[in-house]
Structures are given as C-alpha cells and as structure tokens.
Amino acid sequence: MFRACFRLLCTAMLSVMLGTHLARADNTDGYDPWPGLVQDIFNNRPMNDGGGVIAIEMPYRAEDAAIVPVKLRTTLSPDDSRSVRTITLVIDRNPAPMAAKFELGRDANVTEISTRVRVNSYTDVHAVAELSDGKLYVVKTYVKASGGCSAPAAKNVEEAKNRLGQMRFRQFATSDQDRAKGVREAQIMIGHPNNSGLQMDQLTQLYIPAFFVDQLKLWQDDSLVLAMEGGISISEDPNLRFTYVSNGAKRFRAEARDTDGHVFRNEWDIDKPGI
C-alpha cells in the first residue's frame, strides 16, 4: 500500500515537473460551476429541458474575448399556449456569470435576441427561459476561450469614453412574409465602456471601479418590447438586435441606466408604422 502510494506520489511529482497535469487547455478539472449557479441565480428551482422552447447560438470559439456574439431564439410552436417571459444568460466560468436577464414584453412577441458578451475562459453558457407556466427551461452550449492577445477588455479606451451615452437605433428589412405578420427586426446600441471592475491597476494595486449599463428598457410607444438587466459580461457598447411584432406604434423609445446613475434616453420614428 505504502509503495503504491509512493509510486503515485512520484508520478504526481513527475507530472508536476513536466507540467503535464495542466497541459489541458480546457477546464476538464471535473468541477462544474452550474449546480452552484442554479442555487445562486435561480434559487435551486427545477430546471427542465429547454429543447423546443429556447435555443442558443454562439461560435464554438470565442474569436475575440471581448466581443462574442450570442443569439437567443424562442422555439415554441405558434400554437403553444405558453409564452416566454424572461431569458437569463449565464456564462458559467466568467467572473460574474450572470451576463443578462431579458424580460420579453407581453405583447411584443420577441423571438430572437442577439447580443455580444465577454468570455474569459473555456466555459459552458446556459440560457434559461422562464415561461408563462412558471417553469424554467434550460439549454446550453460550450465556448472555447480565445487565444493570442485577445482580452475581454476595451481596445480603444479613449473612443469608448467619447461614445458614452450615445445611442443608435437601426431597423432592418424583413421578409415580405414577416412584414405581413408585423414582424420587425431592430437593433439598439449604447456607447458605454462597460468596465468590469475586475481589473487591477498594477501600479496602484487598486481595482478600476466597475462602470456598466445595468438596465435597458425598450418600448414601442408605451408598450414594453424588451428589457435587460445587464452585468459586466456584456461587451463594451452594449448592442441588442431583436425581432418583435409591431403594435402600430410610431415611436420607438429606449432608456438605459448605468451603475453611476446616469440615465440615457432617446427615441426614434419607426419606419412605416402600422402592421
């Protein structure tokens, strides 16, 4: 027994010296943060399989750690009596895993939301939908971290500061079929550095304070289309592209708040209002 243990110890020491035990580039360390996250974020509520309810699309590799596109789609069949109320996006191994919680307007029928997130590490990414039946439905994907000199930080800090609070709204052409059903596609961009607060200044040993958009609400006239509670995993210059169904409103409105208490508001004419 002792001899076996000793041999094991030797092997372990050898592998330490050769560095082989950490040669893995993925996080197959056996530790899965998800159960703890279900407890912390979802209060341990039961998780149901989200197949047929929600889908998540991300590239297999985070090409740019600071800007990883993610697309969430609701996939409930049109005759399903349930509807999606919220979608929570969780990047398991990020320093602040809860990236965003989206609230879908009751009458807006949002079926697609695309945004961009920071990805710090090799990680599972979960999307959890809460339906009108009060239950949670989960799907997940896996993203490999970026390599090279990519980092989940700003590329052009001055430019990011200059854009603070600027908002842009864009409307996209949709197919004739969608248009007939009143389905619109739009995008909102907010200039903001979205600093994580996790970056230490090596000279002062002080953390650079967190400064990010924590709330964003979008309306067509006075009817909520989409709201987002954002965290530090949302990329610099938060960017949402989404579909919704027009209620005939003529104005689209946006309001964003950040952690310093700034409130940014803007509104735009909707192209060809009406259904």
Partner: peptide, 22 residues
Amino acid sequence: PRALATRGQFYIDNFRRIMGHE
C-alpha cells in the same frame, strides 16, 4: 501601463493554461 493593468492578469491566466506554470 493601462493596457497591462486591464489585460495583464488575463494574459497570464490564459497563457498559464496554454504554456504551463514553469
């Protein structure tokens, strides 16, 4: 210095995984 402050630790963590502790 600012670039090192905001990215340096991430680089170290990332490349420790790829290149090893030594």
